[in-house]
């Protein structure tokens, strides 16, 4: 009887999607819900939770260290947007040029860094940005007569170092996104523009860029989330979650510090909720500005 039931064509679809439904309920909706409840509680690992209303939120919004973490994450996110959208797009256009030799070779080579883990990349860059006079960083700035510096103790340089890791790992991937976007552009547009006497720059500005918009929005959306949620890069770069004067502290880093290192689960959950809200607001604003929710015209 049960077998007949489970095997009927009416019930089968639900059986197929059941693993997802369970995962969604247990490992997504429930944690999200408990994140909300925890954010109104004072809760230590293994202890009875205590309801404290909006205290966590109130405390968080005046918490100087948290605000520092937010500003670091936002600066990092903006940095990745500025560096990881226009340049990969430009490189994609250049590499897609019919006069380019060795396209596939360069595509694969630029893709390689994305295969390395944050741990390995972080280790390499941490040591390249070492404070010894002979570290690669100091050798390079030495060429310009500067240094030696302690880059990972300076706020500016360590942000630069984090952005360099991001660029190193993701330029190739974003370039591939744009390349697949370029493939979808009909060459007739360019031919028509050539007849009208448009130069390469005008073609880029008036044909390529507008037609790459869906790809750009996709890259923008994932970059906003990835930028705001960055943590492991900083964890590796500073060999732990404690950077001097919190110059490398990010929102998720603060969540981790409060929740795991200090086991203040309620407070950490509040950080998570604030991150969710910030990320949602920025992304929805971005999508509205880009007209994603408008009907296709």
């Amino acid at each position: 009887m049960l077998k007949r039931f489970l095997y009927s064509k009416k019930v089968a679809p639900y059986v197929f999607v059941l693993p997802f439904v369970l995962t969604f309920l247990i490992f997504w909706l429930y944690p999200l819900g408990s994140s909300f409840t925890m954010s109104f509680q004072e809760r230590m690992m293994g202890q009875q939770p205590k309801w404290i209303g909006f205290d966590n939120y109130q405390k968080l919004l005046t918490d100087k260290v948290f605000l520092k973490a937010v500003s670091n994450s936002v600066i990092y996110m903006i940095g990745t947007l500025v560096l990881l959208i226009p340049f990969p797009m430009l490189f994609a256009v250049l590499i897609d040029n019919k006069f380019m030799w060795g396209q596939n070779f360069f595509k694969s080579a630029f893709f390689l860094p994305s295969l390395t883990s944050v741990v390995v990349a972080g280790t390499i860059f941490r040591l390249m940005f070492g404070e010894m006079e002979t570290s690669l960083f100091n050798q390079v700035i030495g060429l310009f007569g500067a240094g030696p510096l302690k880059p990972l103790k300076s706020a500016g340089w360590s942000m630069a170092a984090l952005l360099i890791i991001a660029c190193w790992r993701w330029t190739g991937v974003n370039m591939l996104y744009f390349l697949s976007g370029l493939k979808g552009i009909d060459t007739e547009y360019y031919e028509a523009a050539s007849i009208d006497g448009a130069n390469s720059w005008q073609k880029f500005l008036y044909i390529t860029m507008p037609l790459l918009k869906p790809t750009t929005i996709y890259v923008l959306t994932i970059s906003i989330y990835a930028g705001l949620a960055m943590f492991t890069e900083s964890l590796m770069m500073f060999n732990g979650n404690n950077s001097p004067k919190n110059i490398g502290l990010t929102i998720v880093g603060y969540l981790y510090r409060q929740g795991i290192e200090k086991s203040k689960l309620g407070y950490a959950a509040t950080v998570g909720i604030v991150l969710l809200v910030v990320a949602m607001v920025i992304n929805i604003a971005q999508l509205i500005m880009n007209g994603t929710f408008k009907k296709e015209d």
Binding site: Y30, P31, S34, S35, M45, Y225, A229, G272
Partner: peptide
């Protein structure tokens, strides 16, 4: 992003 759920998932 999964990171938002780190705390409740850990619990």
């Amino acid at each position: 992003p999964f990171e938002i759920l780190l705390m409740p998932m850990y619990v």
